[in-house]
């Protein structure tokens, strides 16, 4: 939609000559075909399978097979058993999102508007960690937050942590891990929209006696809204479903819904429950995204 919005309409121009009409009519569909097939095979079909698995008879088992009994009860059962992990997922990723915004917005602004010739280097610095695997980056945080590491030592010395205090295996570690791992997803879209911000608009605002704060609220923030919304979504959605950070940096008390789904599918072999939980997560995220987009009221993201 956003792409189409910028295409000039052909209303004012003379209509193009109607040559080779048949082919040009087919062309858009042909262009759509690879993407559509991809989506169908790797998204739509698995989604239908997952939906059906979530309604299987929970009394079934791997060796006897599962019967389709439209067991909608799987949903309330799953929610009842694992609502703490559910709410924890949203809580942690919301806190991480706030932290990431506090760090990411100034960062994106600085890169886009103030970095000058350092711009490309700084952009590379934001993207470079993504060249290593997600797992390796999270394992690196284990070393950073280690009980015998420099950071914990420093915090103990300044009495922010008790003598036996630790960061690893606490909610703090999980939230920090989430913040770090998904930060680039927030920064890059933000950068893209802040980069297009015309500095002359800010000059105009100050000419009209707007304080810097007011200029930010009335000019910068509204103009960066598309990037902000895209960034928060790109951050929030994977962060909520993440299970690596809770697994490696947390303890069972910090497990998020992703850990539960992982264990349902791989360890407990409770496929109906795993599928139901996956769908609940998807529905909850969709609902949040929907409300958010409605309230934020931007059409440029969709």
């Amino acid at each position: 939609m956003s792409a189409l919005a910028h295409v000039p309409t052909s209303a004012g121009k003379p209509a193009p000559p109607p040559v080779r009409r048949g082919r040009s009519r087919l062309l858009p569909y042909l262009l759509l075909l690879p993407g559509a097939v991809w989506l169908l095979v790797f998204f739509a079909v698995p989604l239908v399978q997952l939906a059906s698995a979530s309604l299987y008879d929970p009394a079934g088992s791997l060796s006897t097979g599962y019967a389709m009994t439209w067991a909608f009860g799987n949903y309330p059962d799953a929610l009842q058993a694992y609502w703490p992990q559910f709410s924890r997922s949203f809580l942690y990723s919301a806190i991480a999102l706030v932290l990431a915004l506090l760090m990411g917005y100034p960062l994106a602004y600085a890169i886009a508007q103030k970095a000058g010739r350092w711009k490309n280097l700084l952009l590379v610095a934001v993207v470079a960690p993504m060249f290593t695997s997600f797992l390796v980056r999270t394992l690196a945080w284990k070393t950073i937050l280690s009980d015998n590491g420099a950071l914990v030592g420093l915090l103990r010395d300044v009495h922010l942590l008790g003598p036996d205090g630790r960061l690893l295996a606490t909610p703090i570690a999980v939230v920090l891990g989430l913040t770090y791992n998904f930060l680039p997803f927030l920064v890059l879209p933000l950068y893209a929209s802040l980069e297009r911000l015309d500095p002359r608009l800010l000059e105009a605002a100050s000419d009209l006696y707007a304080s810097p704060l007011r200029a930010f609220a009335k000019v910068t923030l509204p103009l960066s809204m598309p990037g902000l919304i895209a960034g928060t979504l790109l951050f929030f959605i994977p962060a909520t479903g993440d299970y690596i950070n809770a697994e490696l940096l947390g303890t069972p008390n910090e497990y998020m819904i992703g850990n539960v789904i992982d264990s349902a599918f791989l360890v407990r072999l409770d496929y109906p429950q795993g599928a139901a939980l996956s769908f609940l997560l998807m529905a909850a995220i969709l609902a949040i995204v929907f409300v958010y987009l409605r309230r934020a009221g931007t059409e440029e993201v969709l």
Binding site: V48, A51, L55, L62, G65
Partner: peptide, 15 residues
């Protein structure tokens, strides 16, 4: 289509 596909689903035993 989804509803139709769902109704026909269920898995066979793995034994």
């Amino acid at each position: 289509a989804t509803a139709g596909a769902l109704a026909g689903c269920g898995t066979k035993g793995a034994q």
